[in-house]
Computed example of a mutant assay.
Amino acid sequence: MALKILTYLDDSADLIRASAVSRYWQNIVVSNGLSKHLCITRFPELASITRVDEVSHDNSEPSHNSAEIEHRAYASLFRALTSFPQTYCIADPVSASSTDNYPEESIINTLDPRDRILHRDSYWSSTGSDDPEAPETLIYNLTASLCVISEIVLHPFQALFQMDFPIYSSKAVRFRMGHPKSRDELDHDFMETQECADDKFIWTYTSPIFPVARENRLQRFKLPEPVVCIGGFLQIQLLGRVQVQAADGKYYICVAHVQAIGRRLSPAFSVEFSEPSNSVSLKYDAVEFGVAMSNVSSGRNNSLSTSLLPVQPPRQLAWGNLQDFMQMVQAHPDGVEYEWVDDDEFEIV
């Protein structure tokens, strides 16, 4: 009866309090792995963890009671998954399935919050395709091997330097998370060699497909439930194309900004993979967890900085037109005569 009652608890703090009632209840909680059960029920991705190790910071004899270690680790992990502060979780780009002009239109531009860098628009562009259904993928390394991601932010790029100011969005987007098949393969620089790294990963989570608005703005895609990314890699699948470039008649996808919002669990928690079986070990550092929870309780690091998102709203078309005009004037230092026409366009005469 006691076990049945305890399985209805939905917070690790309640399980810890229950286990403090008596040795009998403590034994029920620990021996039946109720903290682990609670974590996996809320975050099914954690079911892939096969081993738990607790980090030791002194020379004391480590505990050999695996049930007690798992209880402490999973009870703390649940609190981290639900209490650690929200932050931006993308660290570095890994690869793009294609890039039109490297490095000027590299995937690395999608992580820069500025709209322009050195007088040039900042964005990633795919190569052109005759097929409007041709997909593209962007892969990023997250800030930790263990993160819980709740939403992804995507900003389609609008080419204000082209006629009619086209927006090169995709039709839809889907997200996958996972880990590399082998860490050794990630020593390769996929961006520099312009190679796609899609087949170098095992994707353990795939989101639903979200429609993308053909608009020049940050678009937020909230996952149905927060997802634990075990391994620390995010793939963005850009599905379908909507915009043809007038210069060559091909379809392109361009992205200005990308970010993933969630909770970074390191250094209190991390995961390691054993090759070739890819079994997953959870590393738990009780000292680091205590420091992190102390910061949460005191309110430190409890707000989401906007420093990794665009610092300005999308440029208005009038400002884009003025910039284009000034660049044209600067490109002709010897002087050029302009004839202004009624529809506010100009031409060189």
Rank of each mutant, 00 (worst) to 15 (best):
K250W: 11
T41A: 08
R217S: 12
G178N: 08
P135R: 04
E339A: 07
E70T: 05
D248Q: 03
K222A: 06
D199H: 12
E345A: 15
T87C: 09
R183F: 10
H188T: 14
S307M: 09
C89M: 03
C196T: 06
F210K: 05
A91N: 02
R217F: 09
D58K: 03
N65Q: 09
G299M: 06
S303C: 09
S97V: 01
K171V: 11
R114K: 13
D344K: 15
E192I: 15
F190E: 04
A144S: 13
F157R: 04
N301Q: 04
R241I: 06
I49N: 10
V29M: 07
W203A: 02
L239A: 15
D189K: 10
I117P: 06
N32K: 08
S274G: 07
S97W: 04
Y24Q: 08
L154Q: 05
R72W: 10
S129H: 12
H37Q: 10
D184H: 12
D53W: 08
F84T: 02
P135E: 12
R23A: 09
S97R: 06
A96W: 01
S60C: 03
P226A: 01
I117E: 01
S76Q: 08
A18E: 03
S170W: 03
I202A: 11
L15E: 15
S122D: 00
D10R: 11
C229T: 04
G231R: 03
T82Q: 04
L34R: 02
W25D: 15
A318T: 12
L309Q: 08
L34P: 07
H257A: 02
V244L: 14
